[in-house]
Every structure is written in structure tokens, then in C-alpha cells.
Simulated scan of single mutants.
Amino acid sequence: MIKWIIAAEVAFWIVIIAGLFSRYVLKWNKVSILFFLLTPLIDLGLVALTVIDLRNGATATTAHGLSVIYIGVSIAYGKTMIAWADEKFQSWFLKKPSSKKTLTGMAKAIHELKMWARHVTAFSIGSLLFWGIITFVGSQATEALNGIWRVWGLVLLIDAIICLSYFIFPKKVTS
């Protein structure tokens, strides 16, 4: 299963790079949009492979759990990952200066809160997928999914504490 997760991640970034290349180098904006629209199909393919593997009798492993996390994260953070890649592509290959500012104070805290909200979204999507897979496949072979879900819940809690720390101890401007 881990090979499918790696393949999905590689395919995701190949599609993103192809989209950026076609947008900025080839000036094919409509083609670039088609590439970006392929990213959810990669996620759906990974979900299908996970379900098929478990339905064919495989006992759930950490890799199956990671595939569910990958999908939740990809959906929740997909737009920001594409925006990050877009900014880096323009900076590295088109030699455009970065327009990104270093955030401090309340602006940084609000940004971190928005990122935590994305994490909550990813966790919610992943939780629905965990529940759906366990319901569809049967709970006898999916104990590893429950363990992964609990660890992810703990990570979400830690992320919330870190997020709150930016409100309590705002990041100061460095000279």
C-alpha cells in the first residue's frame, strides 16, 4: 500500500509542475487548469486502491491509515499547496521576486488559526473516510485505522496548542 501512497504523491507533484509549466512557460492557461483539476482524481484513485485492498482481505496497516490522512490533507491543503508551488515556480524559474511577507503579531496568529482550521478540515474529511472504510470493509480488519485516527487526533490537539501560542506569545518583528 505504501507504494501507492508514494505514487499518488509523486503523481500529485508531477501534475502540479505540469500545470505550472503549461501556465507560465507555454502560456496554456486552460490546459494548466485541467492539470490542476487532476489532483482530486489522484486522491480518488488512492481511496479506491485503499478500499479495494482492504476488501480483498488485507488487514489494515499504518499505510492504509496514511492513505486516508494523505487524502484529507490533500483536499484541505490542496489550494495552499498549489499556491505555494506557484509562488516558488515563479521565484525559481521565472526569477520573479517573492511577494510573500513575513507575518508577525496578530497577522501571524490569524494565519496560524486559518492553517489550524485547514487541519480540522483535513481531520474531518479523514475521519469521514476512516468511518466509511471501516463501515464498508468491516471493523474486524481495521484496528490499525483506529490507532492512526487516535494519533492524528493527538496531533490535531498539539497543533491547536501551538496555534494558540501565537495569540498568547505573538511573533515579534525582527530587525
Results as ranks from 00 to 15, higher is better:
residue 168 I to M: 12
residue 45 G to Y: 00
residue 45 G to Q: 00
residue 151 V to L: 14
residue 1 M to K: 01
residue 31 V to I: 08
residue 31 V to E: 00
residue 74 S to E: 08
residue 151 V to N: 07
residue 52 I to W: 01
residue 87 E to F: 12
residue 153 G to Y: 02
residue 157 L to F: 12
residue 60 A to W: 02
residue 11 A to F: 02
residue 48 A to D: 03
residue 148 I to P: 08
residue 109 A to P: 14
residue 127 S to I: 06
residue 11 A to L: 11
residue 157 L to D: 01
residue 25 V to L: 05
residue 97 P to T: 12
residue 90 Q to S: 10
residue 144 A to E: 10
residue 103 L to I: 10
residue 170 P to L: 00
residue 115 M to C: 05
residue 49 L to H: 04
residue 32 S to I: 02
residue 140 Q to A: 15
residue 140 Q to G: 11
residue 24 Y to H: 11
residue 115 M to N: 08
residue 10 V to E: 01
residue 123 F to A: 10
residue 88 K to I: 15
residue 142 T to N: 09
residue 71 I to E: 09
residue 70 Y to N: 08
residue 160 A to Y: 09
residue 67 S to Q: 07
residue 16 I to R: 00
residue 63 A to C: 06
residue 136 F to M: 13
residue 8 A to V: 01
residue 169 F to S: 09
residue 117 A to C: 11
residue 168 I to L: 14
residue 171 K to S: 12
residue 76 A to I: 04
residue 55 R to K: 14
residue 169 F to E: 11
residue 34 L to C: 09
residue 32 S to T: 04
residue 130 F to K: 07
residue 47 V to P: 05
residue 164 L to Q: 08
residue 163 C to G: 13
residue 144 A to K: 05
residue 35 F to T: 00
residue 131 W to E: 11
residue 72 G to N: 06
residue 15 V to Y: 02
residue 165 S to N: 14
residue 18 A to D: 04
residue 156 L to T: 05
residue 8 A to N: 05
residue 123 F to M: 07
residue 49 L to P: 04
residue 138 G to W: 08
residue 15 V to D: 09
residue 151 V to G: 06
residue 105 G to A: 03
residue 127 S to A: 12
residue 40 P to Q: 00
residue 43 D to A: 00
residue 15 V to C: 03
residue 35 F to L: 00
residue 95 K to N: 14
residue 81 M to W: 09
residue 17 I to C: 07
residue 49 L to V: 08
residue 92 W to Y: 15
residue 75 I to F: 09
residue 88 K to R: 15
residue 58 A to N: 11
residue 116 W to L: 05
residue 163 C to A: 12
residue 4 W to R: 02
residue 76 A to H: 09
residue 96 K to N: 14
residue 102 T to A: 11
residue 115 M to S: 10
residue 136 F to H: 15
